[in-house]
């Protein structure tokens, strides 16, 4: 099973990098959905030798919340702005990818020097989760639109989730679910705020000036 876990870890990092390289907001959200889908198989993969109900529940919960509902809500939030859906990065796509690659290399380097008490499913879990967190941060910082910041936040959360899977037993299932639900609720509220911002935009031209100062240009 290790090979599948390794593959999934690498896919997760790959999708984070592709989100960083995306040029359209719609594409970003789709790639985030696929990343979450890959991630949702992890609990089952990691415990495939002794599958329990909680693994399946966690998998299903992740799948429904992160791979279906969250992308759906994000698409709802940007439904009026399909004409102007560029990402508007602060630094160019090319240099973003180079920086992203450096971050991935850095996280492998850092992870090689930490010792982990106990056994983990695969050596790739820690560096990949760290890389995903850092890439998520980078998306948040260098992409200025409101929705893209939410996607960056979600990528970061995916990284933390991947990390959490490696220490499964410390958290009871209810709390894991609480964490998932909280993140879902956060996105829900953020999407509503983004929606309000858009409406405000359509109502008054003065708003355009104000938000474009902040980088938002819906």
């Amino acid at each position: 099973m290790t090979i599948w876990i390794d593959a999934a870890c690498i896919l997760v990092v790959f999708f984070s990098l592709s989100i960083l390289a995306a040029y359209r907001i719609g594409g970003m959200i789709q790639m985030f959905a696929v990343q979450s889908l890959v991630l949702s198989f992890m609990p089952v993969l990691m415990h495939s030798h002794a599958l329990s109900l909680r693994d399946i529940l966690l998998s299903l919960g992740t799948m429904v919340l992160k791979a279906v509902l969250v992308p759906y809500i994000l698409f709802w939030a940007i439904r009026h702005v399909s004409m102007r859906s560029e990402v508007k990065p602060i630094i160019g796509i090319g240099s973003s990818i180079v920086c992203g690659a450096l971050l991935i290399a850095g996280s492998f380097w850092v992870s090689s020097s930490v010792t982990f008490p106990g056994k983990i499913a695969s050596d790739l879990v820690i560096p990949c989760s760290l890389a995903t967190v850092l890439l998520g941060f980078m998306i948040m910082v260098t992409r200025t639109r409101a929705v893209t910041q939410v996607v960056g936040y979600l990528v970061m959360e995916n990284g933390i989730f991947l990390f959490a899977l490696s220490l499964f037993d410390a958290m009871p299932i209810l709390i894991e679910m609480g964490i998932l639900l909280d993140i879902f609720a956060a996105v829900f509220i953020m999407a509503i705020v983004v929606n309000h911002i858009n409406e405000e935009f359509e109502r008054s031209p003065a708003a355009v000036k104000r938000w474009s100062k902040m980088g938002e240009s819906i």
């Binding site: 936040y153 956060a186 953020m190 705020v193 309000h196 911002i197 405000e200 938000w211 902040m214």
Partner: peptide
């Protein structure tokens, strides 16, 4: 209005991160 939305956004994003 614009100012309150801006404040809400800042609060949500900074605190969530």
């Amino acid at each position: 209005n614009q100012q309150t939305l801006e404040a809400t956004w800042k609060y949500l994003l900074v605190c969530s991160v």
